[in-house]
């Protein structure tokens, strides 16, 4: 291969940033819950899926009742309707599947999480059917030029939303009373309880906020790819979980960094490693690159990029 085409390189980096923001949005939810409870909420990906599909249903309804409503408004209102659905779901999952197991062996909640995941997938299959749904372009997916590369408005929105949510969460965790209670719970549940923190309430709130984020993430994913499906949460959740661990699970900034890094690795890996290895490792090894970087990072930094075992955990 000859010289690197700069337009293509810029496009690949942009691709990676958008994909990474998608991962980061979902990873933030994982990391929130992990930070407070030390629990991998495997069902998070399914909450993302429920968020996307219920937004889709509400938006169809809105579109029928108020045909004149502009696209972004439809999306905004239907997302606002989907958020409480996911919040309620998150609350219920914690209450039913995790809370009774808080003192149980470490792997028990992992298995209930898998069970909940299977349940949610199949419920979604009953409610929304087996088929793929086309997600209407409420925010334009028409491309525009950006220094020789192309972007779509929806991608700009995704990056902006991811950054805004991360910033909002940071403020919440580090500047508010609720955040302080969360950090205290993360540090030591029983001591925090003795200090007058209502542990159960804090954990519920964490789940509810995490699920609200999942709803937003689901909408963003569906809008970006114009597609929604009952199975979409599984792969996405897995990638986001990888991103969260890469960044240092439990750390908000880490989830963002891990997400973006993972997105860029996948993008550049698929784009260039094939040429670098003379075609031996092509884009079929995209996920291998990502996991390889993850393993290397964890060998040298066993708690992830930004995961320091201090009060920094959200």
């Amino acid at each position: 291969m000859g010289a690197v085409n700069l337009d293509i390189l810029l496009q690949q980096i942009l691709n990676g940033l958008v994909l990474g923001s998608v991962y980061a949005l979902v990873a933030l939810g994982y990391t929130m819950v992990y930070g407070v409870l030390g629990l991998i909420n495997f069902a998070h990906g399914e909450v993302v899926m429920i968020g996307a599909l219920s937004t889709l249903s509400v938006s169809r309804l809105l579109h029928n009742v108020f045909p004149g409503l502009p696209g972004p408004a439809v999306l905004l209102f239907s997302t606002l309707a989907a958020i409480p659905v996911c919040m309620l779901l998150g609350y219920a999952i914690e209450r039913v599947a995790y809370r009774p197991l808080r003192r149980a062996p470490r792997l028990a909640p992992l298995i209930t999480a898998i069970g909940v995941s299977i349940l949610l997938q199949n419920v979604a299959m009953v409610v929304w059917g087996r088929g793929y749904h086309s997600f209407p372009a409420y925010v334009s997916t028409e491309p525009f030029q950006f220094f020789g590369a192309t972007m779509t408005p929806v991608q700009v929105v995704i990056i902006a939303v991811a950054i805004a949510i991360m910033a909002g969460l940071m403020v919440l965790v580090h500047r508010t009373k609720l955040g302080r209670a969360m950090r205290a719970t993360a540090e030591n549940q029983s001591v925090a309880g003795l200090m007058g923190v209502d542990i159960n309430a804090i954990i519920s709130v964490t789940f509810v906020i995490g699920s609200a984020l999942a709803a937003v993430a689901g909408v963003m994913v569906a809008a970006n790819y114009s597609i929604a499906h009952y199975y979409m949460g599984f792969v996405l959740g897995l990638k986001a979980f990888t991103a969260a661990v890469l960044g240092g699970i439990g750390n908000l900034g880490g989830a963002m960094a891990g997400g973006l890094l993972l997105g860029i690795i996948e993008s550049l890996g698929a784009g260039y490693v094939g040429d670098l290895t003379g075609g031996f490792l092509g884009s079929n090894y995209q996920d291998v690159f990502a996991f390889f970087v993850l393993i290397v990072v964890l060998v040298f930094r066993p708690s992830g990029l930004m995961g320091e075992r201090v009060a920094e955990r959200a």
């Binding site: 992990y34 991998i40 470490r106 897995l238 979980f241 990888t242 661990v245 699970i249 079929n284 090894y285 996920d287 291998v288 990502a290 996991f291 390889f292 993850l294 393993i295 964890l298 060998v299 066993p302 708690s303 992830g304």
Partner: peptide, 28 residues
């Protein structure tokens, strides 16, 4: 070998990745 220092959930994701790497190689 590379995962000796890792604990708990970090180990979980690395082993998950390892399983996928093997499958991807078999597939390709």
């Amino acid at each position: 070998a590379p995962t000796l220092k890792l604990r708990g959930d970090y180990l979980a994701i690395v082993t998950l990745g390892f399983g996928e790497i093997i499958r991807i190689f078999l597939n390709n």
